[in-house]
């Protein structure tokens, strides 16, 4: 998320709403705009998850039977990758806030590596499915499986783009203990991608 370079200095932000530093010293990490976007994404995914859940209630046998063909190993591996990637980004943010920006950059790179590994595992999983001639139109389960995971897949890709930009900016020394709004915003988005997968994995891969 390339923040406007002109406002790299401490831009006085007029806040129309949202008490970031209210009386109790509570502080919302990152930019309010990203949190609006996160809420919108969570809403879209929530509707998708519930559509899956209630569509499953309609024909449980077909869902359970088709679910057996899913590759549980790659699903679990991907969960571990995203959790670890998320953890690395937390460490990166903490490092940068201590002005250890070189260490922070390395953690960001590690987080991206996990994200990239997730994408690779996913591509293999998809190619296996497409080779078995499974597509969005095979049946309702596969339609949901591909729609949900592909929609999430693209969020991981966008997350990678964001982390890449944050990595470059961190290496340029744009962030530190004083200025880390964009870094926290990007990190919040990345954690949201992990949070979504944490719900998606049991729902689609395991629940029967």
């Amino acid at each position: 998320m390339p923040p406007d370079t002109t406002s790299a200095t401490m831009s006085v932000a007029v806040r129309p709403s949202g008490p970031p530093n209210d009386a109790s010293g509570a502080r919302l990490p990152g930019d309010l705009a990203i949190w609006f976007f996160i809420l919108a994404e969570l809403l879209a995914f929530a509707v998708f998850f519930l559509a899956y859940a209630f569509a499953r209630a309609g024909n449980v046998e077909m869902f359970n039977e088709s679910q057996l063909t899913l590759d549980l190993n790659s699903g679990a591996l991907n969960t571990v990758l995203l959790i670890t990637g998320s953890w690395f980004v937390v460490l990166a943010v903490q490092a940068v806030k201590r002005d250890a920006t070189r260490l922070g950059a390395r953690w960001l790179a590690a987080g991206m590596a996990c994200g990239f590994a997730f994408l690779v595992v996913k591509v293999f999983e998809y190619s296996a499915k497409f080779d078995a001639d499974i597509s969005l139109s095979t049946n309702t389960f596969y339609m949901f499986y591909i729609s949900l995971t592909f929609f999430h897949f693209m969020h991981v890709v966008l997350g990678m783009v964001i982390l890449a930009i944050l990595l470059v900016k961190t290496r340029q020394g744009a962030y530190g203990s004083r200025e880390h709004n964009a870094l926290e915003s990007g990190a919040a988005y990345w954690h949201m991608v992990d949070l979504l997968w944490i719900v998606l994995f049991p729902l689609v891969y395991v629940m029967r």
Binding site: G18, P19, G25, A26, V90, V199, P202, V206
Partner: peptide, 27 residues
Amino acid sequence: VMLGLALLKGWLVIYDFMELRHAPTLW
């Protein structure tokens, strides 16, 4: 069990990874 775990995992991600532990209660 699995949804309970998902709740726990989600809770931890929100509180510790997203660092909302110290965020305004609204969020």
